[in-house]
Simulated scan of single mutants.
Amino acid sequence: MKILRNQIKIYLSLILLGICLFAYAHPFYVSIVDIAYSSSKKTIEISTRIFYDDLEMALNHDGNTNLNILKPQRKESIDSAIAAYSKKYLKVSANGMAQGLKYIGYEIEDEVAWCYFEIPQLQPLKKLEISNRMLYSNFKNQSHIFHVTVDGLRQSTKIDNPKSFVKMEF
């Protein structure tokens, strides 16, 4: 009976270890891009959710640096790297006109980095075009899910590497 109990403990320990390893190493590469426009605010608000370790790897690879998002020596250097990386790989066009992203900041929640951007948009938003190549050079299986809400109307879509372009009309 004692041998059986020890075997059960070993099996349970192995199962628990496997679950912990699976939970830590996410086997999929996906980001979520939330875009919201309200006529009353006259601003396009963009938030991206990216696994922080994937973002950190991409920033370090792209900028040939050694940044630590969780424990930055200088938060300004992370902000600067995210702003430059996003400007390079995330492009937005509203009503046929290219727009510049204003980087607001980032925060970490569990395993995810939330990055925030704004674009002033004085005219009603009728057409939105997005090119998102973030993380593509690091992960061949990278996907981006887009949720776009314009004055309460929501559209969603997904693209997979190498596809990088989304067009929505409202």
Rank of each mutant, 00 (worst) to 15 (best):
R49P: 01
R49M: 01
I50K: 01
Y52Q: 03
D53C: 07
D53A: 08
D54I: 05
D54T: 02
L55V: 09
L55G: 03
L59K: 01
L59E: 05
L59T: 02
N60P: 01
N60E: 05
N60F: 08
H61R: 10
G63A: 00
G63H: 11
G63E: 05
N64A: 05
N68T: 04
I69P: 00
L70T: 10
K71S: 05
P72N: 02
R74Y: 13
R74D: 11
R74A: 01
R74E: 12
K75G: 02
K75P: 00
K75C: 05
E76W: 14
I78N: 04
I78L: 09
I78G: 05
D79S: 02
D79G: 04
I82R: 09
A84E: 11
Y85W: 07
S86Q: 10
S86D: 10
S86A: 15
K87V: 07
Y89S: 01
Y89L: 10
L90I: 08
K91H: 13
V92I: 15
V92M: 03
S93P: 02
S93N: 12
A94E: 10
G96P: 05
M97C: 08
Q99C: 13
Q99N: 13
G100V: 09
G100P: 02
L101D: 07
K102E: 03
Y103F: 12
Y103Q: 03
G105I: 06
G105S: 15
Y106N: 10
Y106P: 03
E107V: 13
E107Q: 15
D110E: 15
D110R: 15
D110G: 08
E111S: 14
V112M: 12
V112E: 07
A113C: 14
W114F: 14
W114C: 06
C115Y: 05
Y116E: 04
Y116G: 00
F117H: 04
E118F: 15
P120T: 05
Q121T: 14
Q121R: 11
Q121P: 04
